[in-house]
Design a protein around this nucleic acid. Structure first.
Lengths: 128, 128
DNA sequence: ATGCGCCTTTACGTTTACGTAAAAGTCAAA
DNA sequence: TTTGACTTTTACGTAAACGTAAAGGCGCAT
């Protein structure tokens, strides 16, 4: 599974220690179910978004106990709302940074074009 | 400035150590320019997106040496493209997670509604 | 002069998320 | 049966990003 997802076995076992994965055993060897594969995928996605393993586990735990009492359900809804807010903040941040990157790229390209024109006009000299 | 941005002075000084901020001095005391304020804002935004301080510094350094040689400019464009790719991946991830949160929220709400109906119909008993 | 509040530097401590051996068990091929 | 490839557990090490004292300096109000 490590190769499959491009992570080390150490990382996978660490996720297991943290309760993110719960592989079965065949004798002593670990057997990963499709559930584990999904969870690993979600874990890596969470990581790409800057979530801590603890936060990711919270979400898993929530999902697992979806049949809890209504008080707990309400609590889950709260947590989900918090996550949603964070993600929307991130989305805003991403739009902002992408915009700035666009601007800076354009600036770079125009500088390069300028230099190219100067090379055509003024000859191959690099002097001013 | 710490209060202004809701971070500790320790964090601010740490960012300075890492070369993200470069406050001036009045005698021994630090004086933060508007440039520092902008950089702190960008730093915090980067952090919300899961960038490391090192990555953030790279972007600052790039921005600072925008007047480099064309070889460097091309290199900068490469780095910008890499960052853009990462951000677009994150955007995808965010959309996916937001979608899942929506689904889970809906599921939660329907469960709560069900329970509410049962309370109306079957009386206040919590049994099945 | 001295206490108070604020700033400064220095330095060790902590958490997170693994990396990196080390030592041992297992299973199949040669 | 021995070797090699793979797995397992155990455990110490590490980088990042600060937290948290500790110890002292600066200015000023009393």
């Amino acid at each position: 599974m490590a190769k499959e997802f491009g992570v080390t076995t150490r990382a996978i076992r660490f996720y297991e220690d943290q309760g993110l994965l719960t592989p079965g055993r065949e004798g002593i060897n670990r057997v990963y179910s499709s559930r584990d594969r999904v969870r690993l995928k979600l874990t890596l996605r969470g990581k790409r978004l800057g979530f801590s393993l603890g936060q990711i586990k919270e979400l898993f735990d929530i999902y697992d106990s979806a049949r809890g009492e209504q008080a707990q359900l309400s609590q889950y809804l709260e947590l989900l709302a918090a996550r949603r807010a964070q993600l929307e903040q991130q989305r805003e941040d991403i739009e902002a940074v992408l915009g700035e990157i666009d601007a800076f790229e354009a600036q770079c390209r125009s500088l390069l074009a300028q230099k190219a024109r100067r090379r055509e006009a003024g000859g191959p000299s690099s002097a001013a």
